[in-house]
Simulated scan of single mutants.
Amino acid sequence: MADTLPQEGLSRGTLRSETVIVLALSLGASAVSSLISFVGALTKPGGLKDQAAMLNSSYAPGRPWLDLAWQLFGIATALVPVVLVAHLLTREGPGLRAIGFDRTRPWSDLGRGALVAAVIGSAGLAFYLIARAAGFNLTVVPESLPGVWWKYPVLILSAVQNSVLEEVLVVGYLLRRLGQLGWTPMAALVASSVLRGSYHLYQGIGGFIGNMVMGAVFVLLYRRWGRVGPLVAAHALLDIVAFVGYGLLAGEVSWLPTP
C-alpha cells in the first residue's frame, strides 16, 4: 500500500511529483534559465561587471500603451503559480492561511517586514557593490522603462509580484512540502536557499551568494514567526526601493553603478 499522508490522503510520490511540477512551472525553470544566462555571461569577452543584468525593461519601445499592456500581462501571468499553490493547499483545508499568507495580521507583518528590509537592504547593497567591484557580479539595472506616467506604478506592482511569488513558493510552500516528505529542517533550509540563489545567478556569483544567504535568513524567520506575510512585506519593500530608487538616482549619484 502507498505511504500516504493522513491529512491529505495523498501518497508521498504524488506530493513529490506535485512539488517538481510547481517548481518546473515557476522558479525552478527560472533557475535553469538563470544558469544558462550566467554561462553566457562568463563566456562572453570582457568581465562580468562590464555586462548588465536587465530587469523591468520595455516590451514595446516607443509604444507606451502596448508596453503597458505587456507589463501588466507579464505581472499577472507570473502570479499564476501562486494561484496554483493556493489551489493545492486548499486540499489541506486552510489554503494559503496554512503558510501565514493572509490578512489576519497586516500591521504586524508590515512592521516586521520593514525591520527585516532595513537590515537586509543595507547589507545587500554593500555586498553588491563589493562583489561588482571585485568582478564577481554583473551591473544590475533594476529598471530601464521609458519615462511615462505608468513607470513607477508598474515598478511597484512588479516588486509586489516578485515578493508574493518567491516567498509563497520558495519559503511557505516548499518548506511545507519538504517537511511532509520527511526532509530534515537543515536539508529543507539548504534546498530553499540554494534555489533562491540559483534563480538570481543571472546577476553573477555575488547575486547567487547574496540571495542564498537572504534565503537562509528568511527560512529561519519563517520558522520563528510561522508566517510568510512579513517576508512578503520585506521583499516587496526591498524591491520597491531598488526599482524606484534606481529610476530616481541612476546617473545622479556617483556610487550607483550604471552600464
Rank of each mutant, 00 (worst) to 15 (best):
L165W: 04
L195M: 09
R177M: 05
W150A: 15
L155A: 04
L138P: 01
G204R: 00
L220T: 14
L201F: 00
W183P: 03
A187E: 13
N162D: 14
G182W: 05
G197L: 04
G206E: 00
L165P: 07
G179W: 04
S144N: 09
L157Q: 09
N162C: 15
R196V: 14
Q203S: 05
G204Q: 00
V213R: 05
L155S: 01
G182I: 06
L220K: 13
L174P: 01
E167W: 06
E143Q: 09
L174Y: 03
V154W: 01
E143F: 02
S158L: 05
V160Y: 10
F136I: 07
S158R: 02
W150L: 10
Y152Q: 10
F136H: 07
R196C: 14
G207W: 01
N162A: 15
L201N: 00
I156R: 05
L145Y: 01
N211L: 05
Q203I: 02
V190Q: 03
T184Y: 03
I205E: 07
T184V: 04
Y202D: 12
L169C: 13
E166K: 09
M186K: 10
V154F: 06
V171D: 09
G210R: 02
W150T: 14
V141E: 12
L175R: 04
V213T: 12
V190W: 00
V164L: 14
V171N: 13
M212Q: 11
G206R: 01
I209F: 01
S158K: 02
V140I: 11
Q203E: 03
E166T: 11
L155M: 08
V171S: 14
L174I: 02
F136Q: 04
V213L: 09
Y152D: 11
V171P: 06
G179T: 08
N211T: 08
S198P: 08
S144I: 03
L201R: 01
F208M: 00
G207F: 01
L165V: 14
Y173A: 05
Y199C: 04
Y199P: 03
V168A: 12
I156F: 02
A191Q: 12
Y152W: 07
G210H: 03
V219G: 11
T139P: 15
P153F: 05
L157C: 13
V217F: 03
S198I: 06
W183C: 08
V170M: 15
S144R: 07
L175V: 10
W150Q: 13
L138M: 10
Y199L: 04
L155K: 00
F136M: 09
R176G: 15
Y199I: 02
V171L: 13
S192I: 08
S192Y: 02
P146A: 10
R196W: 12
F136E: 02
G206Q: 00
Y173L: 00
P142E: 02
L145C: 01
I156L: 05
A188S: 11
Q161M: 14
V140T: 12
P146S: 15
S198D: 11
L220R: 13
